[in-house]
Design a protein around this nucleic acid. Structure first.
Length: 682
RNA sequence: GGCGGGGUAGCUCAGCUGGUUAGAGCGUCGGAAUCAUAAUCCGCAGGUCGGCGGUUCAAAUCCGCCUCCCGCUACCA
């Protein structure tokens, strides 16, 4: 063990403001777990690290919404997710959290080290600050009058009317978007990480990694083309890791900067737990260690560019050797979406189904090369027709045969026919083939490879016809069964990384006293089932899933999508306005005369409406919600005195009132009966 | 519109550093077998590899154009 290869394996830190769903598992966690379990069987020295990412604005916002504190949010989801991971069999050595003291300390030290080296750039900027909300207003949180074209409602970063790029402080009469108060100008100092300085080194680093997945390299090259710029390392926020400098009150480290360091702090914590506080150095700072970072594609920039640059800047750490990033898993043809409740949550599913069945299905559909889909029916088919029928049945027919005909005693091998030899060859080749695929992060292929062997095993059983040879050629029958039970044992081992629970059970069922975890993968070919062993309590390894159970899940998804319309959080009501203010808005009934899609625009349609004897052209962003031709003749409510705007080169002389929702929550504001067009609304 | 990823058998996908009759699993149909969770095994059927053009002795595979789908982004007055 001591001289074996050393690995540190990390899986992306899940953000602690929501529950984990199957998409997360298929992205980073199942692949990393399979890999780690395999490496452990290889008796390689490996630490598997993960934890909750618990800082950032999103958590603060969740806390405000749920009327609680960030700490409460983070505690809740950390606990939930930790348990869900455990139940799913994701075998982290440690599942830490970035709110831990050890992480704060690690991040602060890292920051100070970079600062000491003079790498961080300090910039003082005048920014808008809202005294009411007590926060600096970033670009999107402020609007005002455009200094160039004088149109109102220009955002802090860009004026939508004339398209010019703005600095928030340039706006005439700026307003806080949250409370409408006038912000003051306040200067604030921030630290920046000069990513650009490392671009050359990063490009070399990435291009030197010949075995990275092409999708990962593509992403990086895209970023390199754009030229890397400075990235703010600090923020003016309350919730987070304090900037460890004297005059830095109210400043915290930006999440992107500290979250990735969570891997290192978690390793430290692990070392302390097992009584070896310096253990982390032996991994993170020892060049003989291989560092592998499992992530989903949304995390590629941070792990392939930002984090390596930080580590380069610091100088004392390993860089990721490989970053096996998966694409996304979709659900029933659509996106996994927390906000739309179109999701299958780990904590639910782990209670209801066999974890191994879930792991098996996910392993067969891992989005390794492109997005893939989870379908409930597919889950059922894979569990029933593959896991249960092919694999489960092979185990069952072998073990029950031995139980009935050999009194549960493992029969001995006799003379081998050429069929036996061929079968044993396949059997002995299996671990090498599967291992190679695991090494290359091709978990889906590995899974298929094993299943293919189970088919070979079933065929061997069929062709050997032990139920006939039992009486006619007993020796041959024993040989067949001996080979089959050895195949069962081998399958339990090679399937262990993917199906840990059932492998353990099968291992014991064969009559082994040892633990399957203690098997050395490199020696499994020599590992034959002892003929003195006796089978223990045969049980069916995989049960099937009934149609009605799946139907229930499908119904639930449909209901979720409906319920969702009601439970969606309400947008806060805007500040009170005076009646006069309201009267400024001229609302009118208009009849739609024509409506057509605007070429080359996904969302815009061109409407011609009639207001009494007046006609107006309106450009509206509703193309994705309604069929344009279906609107002709309908009466709608419009804002008639809105400033004219130009969209896609077309003049829009008003605005059609609709709900702000999409899909099911989209609706036009209409009238309960026809009235003369042009009539005003009070 | 910009960027990225896709469009291969009914379904899910592999193949795509160009080279024998384009593969696998599931599903369908037919058959064999009956030890086994009515499980298994064999076989048939099923594809103009999104479209057009080009390079080549040879293209699903390389190049160009087009088209459709998905994600991010912009236009949502």
């Amino acid at each position: 063990m001591s001289e074996s290869k050393k690995h540190i394996v990390t899986a992306a830190l899940p953000y602690a403001n929501g529950r984990l769903h199957l998409g997360h598992i298929a992205g980073a966690y199942l692949p990393s777990d399979i890999y780690v379990r395999y490496k452990r069987l290889k008796k390689e020295n490996i630490i598997f690290v993960c934890g909750s990412d618990e800082h950032g604005v999103a958590i603060t916002i969740s806390a405000i919404k749920e009327k609680t504190t960030p700490k409460a949010i983070v505690d809740k989801y950390h606990e939930k997710n930790k348990i869900a991971f455990q139940k799913m069999g994701i075998s982290f050595d440690i599942y830490s959290r970035t709110s831990n003291q050890i992480h704060h300390k690690t991040s602060q030290e890292f920051f100070l080290e970079l600062n000491k080296k003079g790498i961080l750039v300090e910039k003082t900027e005048s920014q808008l600050y809202c005294e009411n909300d007590k926060m600096f207003l970033s670009d999107r949180f402020v609007e005002g009058t455009c200094p160039k074209c004088k149109s109102e409602g220009a955002r802090g970063d860009q004026c939508e009317n004339c398209g010019s790029w703005l600095n928030p402080t340039e706006l005439i009469s700026p307003k806080c978007k949250l409370c409408s108060n006038k912000p003051i100008i306040k200067s604030t100092k921030h630290f920046y990480f000069p990513l650009g300085r490392f671009q050359n080194e990063l490009e070399k680093y990435v291009s030197s990694k010949k075995n990275w997945k092409p999708n990962v390299k593509n992403y990086c090259n895209g970023w390199f083309k754009e030229k890397l710029g400075d990235r703010a390392v600090t923020r003016d926020l309350e919730w987070g890791i304090k900037v460890p400098l004297n005059n830095a009150d109210g400043k915290v480290l930006y999440v992107w900067f500290e979250a990735v360091l969570g891997y290192i702090s978690a390793t430290k914590e692990f070392g302390e737990k097992i009584g070896d506080p310096n253990l982390w150095k032996n991994y993170w700072q020892d060049p003989s260690t291989t560092y592998t970072a499992f992530i989903g594609k949304d995390n590629i920039v941070f792990h392939a560019i930002v984090f390596p640059a930080m580590l380069m800047a610091h100088g004392n750490y390993l860089l990721p050797q490989n970053i096996p990033a998966n694409e996304f898993l979709n659900l029933e043809g659509g996106k996994f979406s927390k906000s739309r409740n179109n999701a299958i949550y780990l904590e639910d599913v782990v209670e209801k189904y066999s974890v191994d069945a879930l792991r098996y299905t996910l392993a067969s559909i891992l989005p390794e090369t492109k997005d893939s889909d989870f379908y409930w029916k597919d889950f059922q088919a894979r569990t029933n027709n593959e896991l249960a029928d092919i694999y489960g049945n092979f185990i069952n027919r072998t073990t029950t045969f031995i139980q009935k005909n050999f009194n549960s005693k493992i029969p001995a091998v006799g003379a081998l026919s050429s069929e036996d030899k061929n079968f044993l060859k396949e059997l002995n080749d299996l671990p090498q083939k599967v291992g190679d695929l695991f090494e290359k992060f091709k978990f889906r292929d590995a899974n298929n490879q094993i299943m293919d062997f189970v088919r070979i095993a079933n065929k061997y059983f069929n062709d050997s016809m032990p139920w006939k040879t039992l009486n006619s050629h007993p020796e041959k029958c024993k040989t067949t069964l001996n080979n089959c039970i050895n195949a069962v044992q081998m399958l339990a081992v090679v399937f262990f990384p993917i199906l840990p629970d059932s492998s353990k059970k099968i291992w014991k069922m064969i009559g082994n006293n040892s633990d399957i975890e203690n098997i050395n993968w490199n020696e499994i070919n020599n590992l034959k089932v002892d003929i003195n062993q006796t089978l223990v309590e045969i049980q069916i390894p995989f049960s099937k899933i009934e149609d009605n159970v799946i139907q229930e899940e499908l119904n639930k998804l449909e209901n979720q999508n409906n319920v969702d319309i009601q439970i969606k959080e309400m947008v806060p009501i805007k500040p009170i306005i005076s009646f006069e203010d309201f009267q400024k808005v001229d609302l009118r009934v208009a009849t739609i005369l024509s409506c057509e899609n605007i070429p080359k625009s996904k969302k815009l349609v061109k409407l011609e409406v009639e207001l009494g004897n007046l006609k107006k052209q309106i450009i509206a962003g509703i193309a994705q919600e309604v069929e344009p031709s279906s609107l002709v003749g309908k009466q709608v409510v419009i804002v008639a005195n809105l400033q004219v705007a130009t969209l896609m080169g077309l003049e829009s002389q008003g605005m059609v009132l609709t709900t702000a929702g999409t899909n099911d929550t989209f609706a036009l504001v209409s009238l309960n009966k026809n009235v003369p067009s042009g009539i005003n609304i009070k």
